[in-house]
Every structure is written in C-alpha cells, then in structure tokens.
Design a protein around this nucleic acid. Sequence first.
DNA 1: TGTACATCAGTGAACGCGCGTTCACTGATGTAC
DNA 2: TGTACATCAGTGAACGCGCGTTCACTGATGTAC
Lengths: 215, 215
Amino acid sequence: MRRSREDAAETRRRILETASRLFRARGITPVSVADIMGALGLTVGGFYRHFESKEALVAKAIEAASDETRLQYAMSREGGVDTKLASALLDDYLSRGHRDHPEVGCPVAALCSEVAHESLPTREAFTQAMHRLLEVIGGLVPGETKDARDRRLCMAAAMVGAVVLSRATSDEVLADDLLRAVRRGVLRAAPRVARTARTIRPSLAASGHKSVRTK
Amino acid sequence: MRRSREDAAETRRRILETASRLFRARGITPVSVADIMGALGLTVGGFYRHFESKEALVAKAIEAASDETRLQYAMSREGGVDTKLASALLDDYLSRGHRDHPEVGCPVAALCSEVAHESLPTREAFTQAMHRLLEVIGGLVPGETKDARDRRLCMAAAMVGAVVLSRATSDEVLADDLLRAVRRGVLRAAPRVARTARTIRPSLAASGHKSVRTK
DNA sequence: TGTACATCAGTGAACGCGCGTTCACTGATGTAC
DNA sequence: TGTACATCAGTGAACGCGCGTTCACTGATGTAC
C-alpha cells in the first residue's frame, strides 16, 4: 500500500516531530523506535524507509526541536535580535510552564546530560541549538567584546542549569526558587531591558503552565 | 562459597563505588547490572544479595557519588564552610579536569537531565547532592537574606550548566569558554574572595586533567 | 574447644521481555510508451 | 488518454541480542550446644 510522495514527506515530518517530543519528554535511550511509530499509528518496519537508524534520527530530532522552539522567532531575517522579544522569550524560558512541559521546550535543557554520551552528529545538532540560544541572549547582552561574550555564556549556563535542576529536584520550593533566582540574575546582568521585561512578563506568564511554543 | 560478613560489606561498598562511577561516566539507563558486576569480576546473580533492584541501587549510588566528591571537605563538622577551601573547590568544579572526568566528578552535573525521569528516591538523593553543592557555595556567598540565597542559586545553576554544556558540545572552543566565563562570573559575584581564588587557582589547575576527587 | 547444623554470599543458567534492525510481501503511486 | 510495468511506503513477522530478575545450587562462615 504505497503512499504518494507528499504523504511520505508528511510521514517523515510527523516521525521527526513525535520523536523530538518523546525524546524531550522521556530522554533518548528510554524511547524506542516502536514507541515513536506506535504513537503515530504506524508499525516499526516503515521507520527504515525514512531514517537509516535510530542514531540518525536523534540528530535530526534535535534539529527539529530546535527549529520548533519559539526562541527562533526572536531572530530577524538578517540575524539581528529584537531586544524586547528576546527578553520576553528568555523570561518564558525560566517559567514553570517551560519546566513542566519539556516535550515542547528547549532541547538543550531537556537533553543536556544525555547528549554527552551520544554520537558526534547528535552533539553537533545540540551545539547548533546552543548557538541559537546564545544568539537570542545576544539580544539582551549585545557586543563583540570578550566581556559581553562571557556574560552571554554565563547567562546561558545559568538558564539551562536552572531549568534542568528545577526539573530534576524533588524539592518543589527549591525548584521554583531556582527559576525565580536566575530570572532575577538575568535581569540584573542585562540592566537596560530589566523594566521592559518586567512589564512584558505578566502577559506571557499569566497562563502559568502555558507552552513555550506557538505553532 | 559464602563469604564473611566483612567481605560481604566490602562487596556492597565496591558495587556502590563502581555503579556510581559507571553511572556518572555513561549515564544510568545505558549501564546494566551485568556491566557493574562484571567490572568487579562478579556474576549478576549476586547483585540481588545486596540490592533489591537496579532502581534501588541508583539512589544509593548517587548518595555514594555525592559522599565521594571532594566538595564535602569544604564543610566543617558544625556545618560551617571554610571560605578559602570553598573557593578553591568551586574553581576546581569549573576545571577541564572535572569536565573530562565525569566518572569521579559531581553527580549533579553528570546526571542532571536523566534524573528527571527517575524514581522519587533517586530524585531525593539528587536533591541532597544539590543542597550539598549549595552549602559549599555558601562559603563564598554567606547570609540568610533572600538576595544571598538567590545569588547562591544563580551560581549553582551557572556552574552545573557550564560543566554539563561543556561536556555536551562538540565545539571545543565553546566548551572551554563556558568554563572560563562562568569561573569569571562566579568570582565577580563573590568579590570578597576573588583575589584569594585567583592565587589559589593555578596550583590546583596546574595538572590540567587532574581529578576532582582525592580518595 | 569441638562438633553438628543453619545461614547466606556468590555462581551460573534460565525466565520472559523489549530492543534495533531485516525482510518478504502488499498494493497504490509514478512513469514510460 | 490509456495501458503495462517499475517503484516504493508501509505491514507484520522474524532475527539475534541484551536487559532485569529469579532460582537451585555450592560451600565457607557463623552459631548453638
């Protein structure tokens, strides 16, 4: 029962979307090819018409997750970054909604410790997603100086660390405090947009568990 | 071929030590019970004389890893923290040696994204290890104010984030820059000990790939 | 102190199960004439 | 435009393999007398 070329392309797209969500939700190793195909109502055999192996899928799924994440919308076509949008998105990054919905969130935060044990293509896709995060942070701390770059790296590390530790801990107070403390720290480190972010924030955070993603 | 009680206790200790190293080196799910027992020259069956299940081992192995890590030595018996020692250890935390030897390093940095999918006892052991890290950071940023606590949380998030992302990325320059930038950021956030740390640092960092652990 | 017996640390084979991957097959789609 | 045939997306069963766990067994250790 062959399908049209359009159907096949759509299937491939759905495999990637589902894989990227399942990997972010449950991790890479614990998610099987059968889990992914089953979630789409398909059987395992067909998977290999679209990808060479599970390993090959992982790298593509991280790329797909990175594309899917709203963070990209902060970047204009010329590679510039809208400051207000960037600050709102980074604030969203440190929200409970993002923490509680890894399946539609940042792949860097979802997979960081697992990726160290994966293949080179996977780690390259992951690195690309890291660079995308750093570009958005560039909207808050611009500049080509070494100091500006160092501050961006600090912010990226703190933001990813906060989300990942907030998800890992069983201490709910600590989990919330981590997000709040780093949100404060990020605003402190980018003083020029602090007020802007504070006023934009409530409208985005209002829904509490709202997804970080639009689509 | 029964062994003495001392032998049995020693075997249990060796299982924990080996498991905690293998989990930190390769992750939890990819390491099997047979891997652990095999590394000790034992067979799988014997494992269940010491632990109820692999899941039960994981929580204990994280505790063991946390105990093993040198960070604890910064704490005095009464719970106080030696400032100079703390600053040197936190500097070591952000060293290449720590990044390149996760098997003897901080379990929080090694397992952070995986632990979110583990059982409650495992996440509790992980949380305890996080609190231990925060206590040591308290040696640099003491105080009971909300602001001091927020700064400690920011530093913890940035430090863990830097190590974990430094391990995950395929970009070696970015990997080194992350460690350096957060080292700078931590010193900036704890100005009173900045000079002390700068003078202590070289002696500890000299060996480059030196382990973070003493033993 | 010596003996008889219960305990149990560790062995090694087996259990059911799910994994990633392969493959013969199907039938609708795409193409050549 | 119609027909004959090649292509290939998806099926479903099977492959070898390693997983976590169980269990009958062993023999040295620990204990009761």
